[in-house]
Amino acid sequence: MISLIAALAVDRVIGMENAMPWNLPADLAWFKRNTLNKPVIMGRHTWESIGRPLPGRKNIILSSQPGTDDRVTWVKSVDEAIAACGDVPEIMVIGGGRVYEQFLPKAQKLYLTHIDAEVEGDTHFPDYEPDDWESVFSEFHDADAQNSHSYCFEILERR
C-alpha cells in the first residue's frame, strides 16, 4: 500500500524555501509514529532540507540527478522507488510537492495534518478530489505552549 503523509496549511501550503513555516512538535511526533519502520520516499529537495537519513526507516530518494550519499537509496523513477521498498505492507511518501503529485494517483491512504495557519509558501500539496477519499480518523488539537497553531490529524482512505 502506498501512503502519503503531509502537513498542510491553508491553501495546501506545505513548504517555503525548503522548510515548513510553522513550529508543531506534535506533528513531528505524528510523522515519526506513522513512518517508523517503514520505507520513506522523498525528493532530493526534501532530502536536502532534512540533511540526514531518517533513523529507523529505509530512505529512498527520487531524483533525476541521483546523489552520492550511500546512506540512502537513490532512484530515478516512481517504479524504481516502489521496487526499492521491497515487499512491505506500507510505503510512506513524505514529499515534496512534485513527489506527492507523482504518487497521489497510486496512493491508497493519506495521513494529513491540517494546520490552521495562513502562511506564504512556494510548495503545495497537490489538489485531490475529496469525494474519492473517506475520512477514517480525525483528531483536532488547539494551539498550545509547544505548538504554534491549532491542527487536525486526519487519515483518508481511497474509496
Rank of each mutant, 00 (worst) to 15 (best):
R33W: 05
L36T: 09
C85A: 10
V88S: 11
S135D: 05
Y128I: 13
I41F: 01
E90T: 01
E80C: 07
E17M: 02
T68S: 13
S135M: 11
D127H: 15
V99N: 04
L62V: 15
R159A: 11
K106C: 13
A29P: 00
G97L: 02
L104G: 03
K38M: 04
V88E: 10
Y100C: 02
E157R: 10
L8A: 04
R52S: 15
F153I: 06
A6I: 14
S138P: 00
K58I: 14
D79W: 08
R33P: 01
R71G: 13
D79R: 11
A29K: 05
E134F: 09
V93C: 07
P55F: 14
K58V: 13
V10Y: 05
E80Q: 10
D87T: 08
D70V: 12
R52D: 11
Y151Q: 13
N59L: 07
F137G: 06
D69F: 09
Y151W: 07
G56P: 00
C85N: 03
N59D: 04
Q146V: 08
W22L: 00
E129R: 12
P105F: 08
R44Q: 07
D69S: 13
R159D: 09
A7G: 02
G121H: 00
A83N: 10
I2K: 01
V93N: 00
A19G: 15
S64Q: 15
L24I: 15
S3N: 09
Y151T: 10
E134A: 09
S148I: 00
V136Y: 06
E154C: 14
A143S: 07
D127L: 13
D70M: 13
H45V: 03
E154M: 15
A6N: 05
A9D: 02
L24W: 02
P39Q: 04
L112P: 02
E120C: 10
S138A: 06
N37L: 08
K76A: 13
K32A: 05
R33A: 13
R52P: 07
W74E: 01
M20V: 00
P89K: 06
F137P: 00
V136G: 06
L36R: 13
T123K: 09
V78I: 07
P105W: 08
H114D: 02
I91Q: 04
P25S: 07
E154H: 13
A84V: 09
N147E: 05
R12F: 04
M92P: 00
E134I: 10
S64G: 15
P55A: 14
S150A: 07
C85D: 01
H45C: 05
V72Y: 15
G51W: 08
I50E: 01
H45W: 06
K38R: 12
N37P: 02
I61R: 00
E157T: 06
W74F: 07
A84W: 05
H149M: 01
G97P: 00
S135Y: 12
N37T: 07
D11P: 06
E157P: 02
D79Q: 09
D122L: 00
P39A: 15
Q102F: 14
K106M: 06
D69T: 08
P55H: 14
Y100V: 00
N18S: 05
S150P: 05
S135L: 10
R44M: 08
S49I: 03
D122G: 01
P66H: 06
D132V: 13
K38G: 05
R98Y: 15
K58Y: 11
T35C: 06
E157C: 11
G43V: 05
D69N: 07
I94Q: 01
I82Y: 05
N18R: 08
K38Y: 07
Y151E: 00
T123Y: 00
R12E: 15
E17W: 01
V78H: 11
R71S: 15
R98P: 01
E48R: 15
R12N: 15
E48L: 15
S63M: 04
M20S: 00
G15A: 01
V119F: 02
G86Y: 08
I155K: 05
Q65A: 11
K32F: 03
K106E: 11
A145Y: 09
D131N: 06
E154A: 14
L104R: 01
Q108P: 00
M16S: 14
D131A: 04
K32W: 02
S148Q: 00
I115V: 07
R44G: 13
P130M: 11
E118V: 09
S138L: 09
K106W: 12
Y151R: 06
P55N: 13
G67D: 15
I14S: 01
P130H: 13
Y111A: 00
S150D: 07
H124T: 11
D127Y: 14
V40K: 00
M16N: 02
H45N: 13
D79T: 14
G56T: 07
P126D: 04
A145V: 07
P130R: 12
F31H: 00
L112T: 01
E134P: 08
K58M: 14
M92C: 15
G86E: 08
R159C: 09
L156I: 12
E120F: 10
S150K: 07
M16Y: 01
K38E: 03
M92H: 02
D127F: 14
E118P: 14
F103S: 03
G56W: 10
D127I: 13
C152H: 11
W74D: 00
E17S: 05
G56V: 07
K58D: 10
I115W: 02
S135H: 08
P25Y: 09
I14A: 13
V10P: 15
I82G: 01
L156K: 12
A26N: 03
P89W: 13
Y128L: 05
V75Y: 05
N18G: 09
L104C: 03
L8N: 01
S77I: 06
D11Q: 15
F140M: 13
D79C: 09
W22T: 01
I50S: 01
S135F: 08
P126A: 07
M92A: 10
L62T: 04
R158D: 01
P39E: 05
F103G: 00
A84R: 05
G121Y: 01
E48C: 15
S148L: 01
P126E: 03
H124K: 12
Y111L: 07
V13G: 01
R52A: 14
W47I: 12
S138W: 05
I60V: 14
Q146I: 07
N18T: 12
P53F: 13
E129I: 08
L156V: 04
I155G: 00
S64H: 08
E48V: 15
G56C: 07
N23G: 14
E139F: 06
D70S: 14
V99G: 01
R33M: 15
D132S: 11
E129M: 13
I50R: 01
K106Y: 10
S148R: 01
L112A: 02
I60G: 02
L54T: 01
G67Q: 12
D69G: 13
Y151I: 10
E157N: 08
P130A: 13
I60Q: 01
D11W: 03
Y100H: 01
T123C: 04
I94P: 04
L62G: 02
R52T: 14
S49V: 06
R52H: 14
S138M: 10
E118I: 11
S148C: 00
P25D: 07
I41Q: 01
D132Q: 10
R44C: 15
E101C: 06
F153E: 02
M20F: 01
I5N: 00
G56Y: 07
Q108R: 10
W30Y: 15
T123P: 00
L156R: 12
G86F: 05
F125V: 00
R98V: 04
N37V: 09
D70P: 15
V119I: 11
P89Q: 09
F140V: 14
S150L: 04
V13L: 05
A9T: 15
S138T: 10
A19C: 14
S3E: 03
G51H: 13
P130T: 12
V13N: 03
